[in-house]
Amino acid sequence: RPLAPRGLRDAPAAGRALATGSLPDLALCSTAVRARRTWELVSAEWATPPPVRYDRRLYAAGVTDLLEVVREAPADVRTLLLVGHNPGLEELVRALASDGLDDTLDRVREKFPTCAIAVLAWHGPGWPALAPGGALLTSVTVARGGKR
Rank of each mutant, 00 (worst) to 15 (best):
A73Q: 05
A61P: 02
D76G: 04
R53G: 08
V77R: 00
P50Q: 07
G62N: 12
G62W: 07
V77S: 02
P49H: 11
Y59I: 02
R56L: 14
G62C: 07
R57L: 05
Y54A: 09
D65G: 13
P74I: 05
L58C: 14
L58Y: 08
D55M: 13
G62S: 09
L67N: 10
R56H: 15
E68P: 10
A60R: 15
L66M: 02
L66K: 00
P49N: 10
E68C: 06
P51Y: 11
Y54S: 11
V69Q: 04
V70A: 01
E72R: 11
L58F: 06
R78Y: 10
V63R: 01
L58E: 02
E68D: 15
P51V: 08
R56K: 15
P50E: 01
R53V: 04
R56T: 13
A73T: 12
A73W: 04
L66H: 00
A75G: 11
P51W: 13
V77W: 00
R57M: 07
E68M: 08
R57T: 06
T64Y: 10
T64V: 14
L66V: 00
V52H: 03
V69F: 11
V77E: 01
L67A: 14
E68L: 09
D76N: 09
P49D: 08
P50F: 11
L67E: 11
E72G: 12
L58D: 03
R78P: 01
D55W: 09
R71K: 11
L66Q: 00
R71C: 14
